[in-house]
């Protein structure tokens, strides 16, 4: 291996076509996850993401068994679960939290049992859960690209609606917007982002890519658009660096990418200006200090 400052170190892996495709994939996935993830974080929908991720798992297995398109199967099942979520959450005596818990564990169990019935090995389960970015085909890449375009267009077109519904649902309703329509759109976007991510970081770790970059960005800035931009940058950075690390040291790429995003979040939590733990601590000390003197 050549030196850290030698450009060859970074260019040489690019000669491998699978590495080039992988880099493109993590970039696209980072963009779409950070974009949708920003709204997930702002609305506190982490658990909904968790539920949709499990639903996608069942959908992928079903599609795999029926020989259909994995992405299509995943999406159809995720939409079904999103709809059930709405119906169940409204039932008295259940509560949204429990409804989500029941639905996602049910769909995951279904996926596991079907995978069993199909007699595919443990390796398939591991691939679905942890992803394999270096196995991304050109076709997968095209599908991911399409997801990115659709999501970007949807967010740009509906930006102000998504923001109003997130910030002040009561006002949104008073302005005549149906919350179920806009929540539905967001759920579809989450499902799309998770679908795009499952090939690269895997179904289980996709949630991390949805949450960690957006949360980190939120700690670092107080404006919405810069927050989204920074989340995208962080997600793409984690993806690219994680992929290189995975290439050089032969560790699985999905966990490497997720650990990097997690490390970024940890750093921001500690050292972010104004919001960070260290910053708050210093300010508190200063306040105590000045109070002791006066």
């Amino acid at each position: 291996m050549s030196g850290v400052f030698d450009p060859v170190t970074y260019l040489q892996p690019l000669q491998q076509p699978f590495m080039l495709r992988g880099l493109l994939a993590v970039t696209l996935v980072g963009i779409v996850c950070a974009l949708v993830g920003s709204f997930v974080v702002l609305r506190g929908l982490a658990f909904v993401g968790e539920a949709l991720r499990h639903a996608l798992f069942a959908g992928v297995v079903i599609a795999f068994l029926m020989g259909g398109s994995l992405v299509g199967g995943a999406l159809i099942f995720a939409l079904l679960v999103a709809w059930l979520l709405g119906v169940l959450g409204r039932q008295q005596g259940i509560g949204e939290d429990t409804a989500i818990g029941v639905l996602f564990s049910a769909s995951f169990a279904l996926g596991i049992v079907l995978l069993n019935v199909a007699r595919t090995g443990a390796r398939d389960l591991t691939t679905i859960l942890l992803g394999n970015v270096l196995g991304v085909s050109t076709l997968d890449l095209a599908a991911t690209g399409a997801v990115v375009v659709v999501t970007l267009v949807a967010v740009v077109v509906c930006f102000k609606e998504l923001v109003v519904v997130a910030f002040d649902p009561a006002l949104a309703q008073a302005q005549g917007r149906s919350l179920s329509v806009w929540d539905g759109l967001l759920f579809v976007l989450i499902a799309l982002a998770l679908t795009a991510a499952f090939q690269t970081v895997g179904n289980l770790l996709a949630l991390a890519l949805l949450l960690a970059p957006a949360t980190t960005a939120r700690l670092l800035t107080r404006r919405l658009v810069p927050m989204i931009g920074m989340a995208m940058l962080l997600a793409v950075l984690a993806g690219v660096i994680g992929l290189y690390i995975s290439y050089w040291s032969n560790v699985p790429s999905g966990p490497a990418i997720v650990l990097l995003s997690g490390a970024g979040f940890g750093l921001a939590l500690l050292f972010a200006p104004q919001h960070g733990v260290v910053w708050s601590f210093i300010q508190r000390r200063r306040l105590q200090h000045s109070r002791n003197h006066s």
């Binding site: 702002l42 102000k160 609606e161 923001v163 109003v164 997130a166 910030f167 002040d168 006002l171 008073a174 302005q175 005549g176 939120r218 800035t221 107080r222 404006r223 919405l224 927050m227």
Partner: peptide
Amino acid sequence: FPLSVLDVVLMGRYG
């Protein structure tokens, strides 16, 4: 929520 004061007032025009 990461919005400025002016952003919030502008929401009144969204309708």
